[in-house]
C-alpha cells in the first residue's frame, strides 16, 4: 500500500490531471472547452512522463552545472516530454485554426446549436438545389454529401458556390 509521501502526491496529481482532462473532453458541450480539457489531459500525460525519470535526490543531467557527486536523473523522459509538448502545441494550434473557421461558418461553438445549424444548412441546401445527390438522409439524421469548395484537385466536383454555407 502506498504511503502519502511527496512523490505519491505528485504522481496522483499527474494521473488526476489526465483523468480530469479526459472527462472534460467527453462531457463538454462546447468545442473550445473541449480543447481546454485536451490541454489539461495532455499536461497530465506529460507530467507522468517526466516523473518516470524522477530519482530521489537527483540533479539535472547537465555536466559541470551542479554537484558532480550527486546522481543525475534519467535524461530520456525529459527528451520525450519535450517532444510530446511540441506535438501537443502543434495539434492545439491546428485545433484553434479549425475552431476559427467553424465559428465563421456557423456562428457558434456549442455542440447542440452547431448540430441544429448544420441540419438547417443541409435542409436549406436541399430546398434550393433539388439535385439528385442532395436527398441523402443517412442513418436517421439528415446528412448531405458535403457540397465542396476548393477541393484542391482531389477530383471531387464542386457543385455548390463557395459561400453557400455562410450564414
Amino acid at each position: 500500500m502506498m504511503s502519502f509521501t511527496f512523490e505519491t502526491v505528485v504522481l496522483i496529481g499527474a494521473l488526476g490531471l489526465a483523468v480530469i482532462g479526459a472527462l472534460g473532453m467527453v462531457i463538454s458541450n462546447h468545442l473550445f472547452r473541449m480543447l481546454l480539457a485536451l490541454a489539461i489531459a495532455e499536461s497530465g500525460a506529460n507530467l507522468l512522463i517526466v516523473l518516470t525519470g524522477f530519482r530521489a535526490g537527483g540533479v539535472a543531467p547537465i555536466l559541470g552545472a551542479g554537484d558532480p557527486a550527486a546522481s543525475m536523473v534519467d535524461p530520456i523522459p525529459q527528451v520525450l516530454v519535450l517532444t510530446a509538448i511540441v506535438i501537443g502545441v502543434g495539434v492545439q494550434a491546428l485545433a484553434v485554426a479549425l475552431l476559427i473557421k467553424v465559428y465563421q461558418a456557423y456562428g457558434t461553438l456549442d455542440v447542440r446549436e452547431l448540430r441544429d445549424r448544420m441540419d438547417a444548412d443541409v435542409a436549406a441546401a436541399a430546398g434550393v438545389e433539388a439535385d439528385a445527390s442532395q436527398d441523402a438522409p443517412a442513418g436517421g439524421r439528415p446528412l448531405s454529401p458535403a457540397p465542396s469548395r476548393g477541393t484542391a484537385g482531389f477530383g471531387r466536383r464542386s457543385p455548390a458556390p463557395a459561400d453557400g454555407l455562410r450564414p
Binding site: L15, L51, F54, D74
Partner: peptide, 11 residues
C-alpha cells in the same frame, strides 16, 4: 500507480 516503482527508476 500504487504498484509502480516510482522514485527509484530502473534507468
Amino acid at each position: 500507480a500504487s504498484q509502480l516503482a516510482f522514485g527509484t527508476p530502473s534507468m
